[in-house]
Design a protein around this nucleic acid. Structure first.
Lengths: 231, 231
DNA sequence: AACTTTAGTTAATGGCTATACGAAACTAAC
DNA sequence: GTTAGTTTCGTATAGCCATTAACTAAAGTT
């Protein structure tokens, strides 16, 4: 006989959520963000559309949950790559590579996460990712400070903002070092955004070598050793 | 009496197109890309929705026309800034500034142009802009070549693609110089994309000083004189 | 066994794209 | 000036979508 353990209902509910997420993601990959409709998901599940409102209060909420899930997946991959990187190598390199690996393996998801009109208004789309990489750069800085531009080469307006950000993040990096970090972050994100949005196709058939070259230059700027990908 | 000149119908038609474009853009700015619907435009015009199909064969076509119009506007601003820049200064600087000026003045349009799921699949979204700036860098190169990385520091896979692109664009820039150009282009686009997509808010309240610093560094890389904005 | 909660149904509203068809207006040729 | 053809618009319609309301059946609870 089957015992009616108390958590059963929740387990079933969880399974339905999982099914919804899976189908939503599948639709996103196959047909873009506009294809992720409540109707389509319900249809694929063999359910009526209004039934899905037992699980999400609105279409928006469903998309938000999907975004959050993808966000966690990417953040997880990056964190995992950082942890797994051997003691000899710098975690930052592995994290940057993990980010691109995920982005190119899942372009639709990456676009949805970073360039969707849906999240654009919600602000700070990828701020937490920035923090993730900032912490790594701060670790490198603590270990051995890298060269920074002279303070007087930065405009007062910029210095002021860098100081504020430095303070806001607990002074882990001095303002001028913060500029080095931001520069690198913009380059990494820039290449990834542009590659996924196909804004580099006009010049490069495959952006991987260019990305690696960028990482090499960033390692040089941070005075850490660059190691090629091990295959 | 009113003469029935032959061009009248075309004039009216042109006016309707202009009205559609204006309303479409207004809706884009006010409510994002999803607000640009045939119905909403028709409603604002006091027309029935099907009537708009006399002007555009589909919703997609309308959005494509809107994108093309915005594209032309931005390209025009950039070209104009390049022409108007005084003989003492480098056009490239003015063009980069014009691009950011437009982007920040019209964030909704810029997002629609560069980060919309609509154009992402259509490929080479902003390739022509890259060409625009490439020509400027080539002009600088012809005038006085800037320092380039040693060929052996670039991976063969990257060198090969740079060679191909160099050839494809008429050899205006040698492959290693092409890498310098691409690096700069990624940084400029990266900052702009991230600023408009609010991916820099976590660090910078105002991205303008950071953008100017980026331009300063690019000028240094291209061995041209950086001039602050004249006010 | 009675009550409550949960998960699903159908029906209905209103917005959207898109097509088909008809009426009016305009154009041009006779 | 009349007539035939073209262009532009409206109405009607079909199909998709989100969302709500009312209802039902099953499962869990007491």
């Amino acid at each position: 006989m089957i015992p009616s353990n108390p958590g059963r209902r929740e387990r079933l509910r969880k399974a339905v959520f999982a099914e919804i997420h899976g189908l939503a993601r599948h639709l996103l990959v196959e047909g873009g963000p506009d294809a992720v409709t409540i109707s389509a998901i319900a249809r694929a599940m063999g359910m009526s559309a209004p039934a899905l409102y037992r699980y999400y209060r609105s279409h928006r909420d469903l998309l938000a949950a999907l975004a959050s899930q993808l966000y966690d997946e990417l953040a997880g991959r990056i964190a995992l790559a950082g942890e797994k990187s051997g003691t000899a190598t710098v975690p930052l390199l592995a994290m940057c590579r993990a980010m691109r690996t995920w982005a190119t393996a899942h372009p639709a998801e990456f676009r949805f996460l970073f360039a969707s009109p849906f999240l654009a208004e919600a602000s700070d789309a990828g701020s937490a990712f920035g923090e993730l990489f900032l912490e790594e750069v701060a670790r490198i800085w603590r270990h051995k400070s890298f060269p920074v531009p002279a303070t007087n080469t930065l405009s007062p307006a910029l210095s002021e903002q860098l100081c504020a950000y430095s303070q806001r993040t607990g002074g882990r990096l001095p303002p001028v070092a913060m500029h080095v970090f931001l520069n690198g972050w913009v380059r990494v994100c820039g290449v990834l955004n542009m590659e996924v949005l196909k804004q580099l196709d006009f010049a490069l058939a495959d952006a991987e070598p260019f990305y690696e070259q960028t990482l090499k230059e960033l390692c040089a700027a941070l005075s850490v050793q660059y190691l090629p990908v091990n295959r």
